[in-house]
Design a protein around this nucleic acid. Structure first.
Lengths: 127, 127
DNA sequence: TCTACTGTATTAGTTAACCGATACACTAAC
DNA sequence: GTTAGTGTATCGGTTAACTAATACAGTAGA
């Protein structure tokens, strides 16, 4: 499940780990109530420091994705769908805002961005 | 012209400076053939290191925005519009790709992103 | 209580980005 | 060639993000 973890990737380890868990939940591999691997066992199998795994779990917990219970473990959390949808929408909006800022920084306006966006999304859909 | 340069901003100084020049060109304040302030004079007026201004100019030169002539100065470059348009399109596509990757990292798909994007763009247009 | 498991906190090392100081190199005009 | 203007290269300090090492703290069951 945690195969494609790459220490040399520019995206931090804790984010890679958290992303994998998110995917697993999205795919139904993990359902609410399931426990995640313990910080130590996962850190061993990934040859990574426990604090790094703990960071990934904290990251997930801050989204409400999982619940951390000190001394017991980390568990996939039941979250009403509408709550999760709201969170995702909020995140999406923030991402788009960041994009618009980055674009403005190099003098790219919203129209050009919209063109590129539609082109890119179309490309993905048609794959 | 370079008033709003803020050393404490999270966006690096050299990017802020480059962005201002881009704006000036886009607004017609600077036209092809115009010379930019010299590295030293601008560094003095901004109370910033010469190397920082030089970095900004190199940044602009890498886009073909300006031409740097060692010993002479830095000059706004004439660039055929279609070339510039292509560059901007390329940049826009790269930005969008980055957005899609970031979104995927937190489990947000293209549809949600498209919704957020349209909402955000609509908001900007209606301002 | 003891043991073996859980997560946590603190500290330090690595790396990369950024920026300043300073010395260097090119160009034009005198 | 000297001078005064240009940009350049190198080096070091600062900061922030990331991760490892290590010691700490909670929980459950024998």
């Amino acid at each position: 499940m945690f195969d494609d973890i790459d220490p040399r990737s520019p995206t931090p380890l804790y984010e890679q780990i958290a992303a994998r868990v998110r995917m697993a939940v999205a795919a139904g591999e993990l359902v609410p109530g399931d426990s995640l691997p313990s910080v130590r066992s996962l850190s061993r199998s990934l040859r990574v420091n426990p604090a790094t795994v703990a960071g990934a779990y904290r990251n997930l917990a801050s989204d409400g994705f999982v619940a951390i219970r000190h001394g017991q473990g980390t568990f996939v959390q039941e979250v009403p769908r509408y709550v999760r949808d709201e969170e995702r929408t909020t995140q999406a909006v923030q991402l788009v805002r960041g994009l618009l800022q980055d674009a403005a920084r190099v003098g790219i306006g919203t129209e050009e961005l919209a063109l590129a966006f539609n082109a890119q999304v179309g490309a993905e859909v048609s794959e």
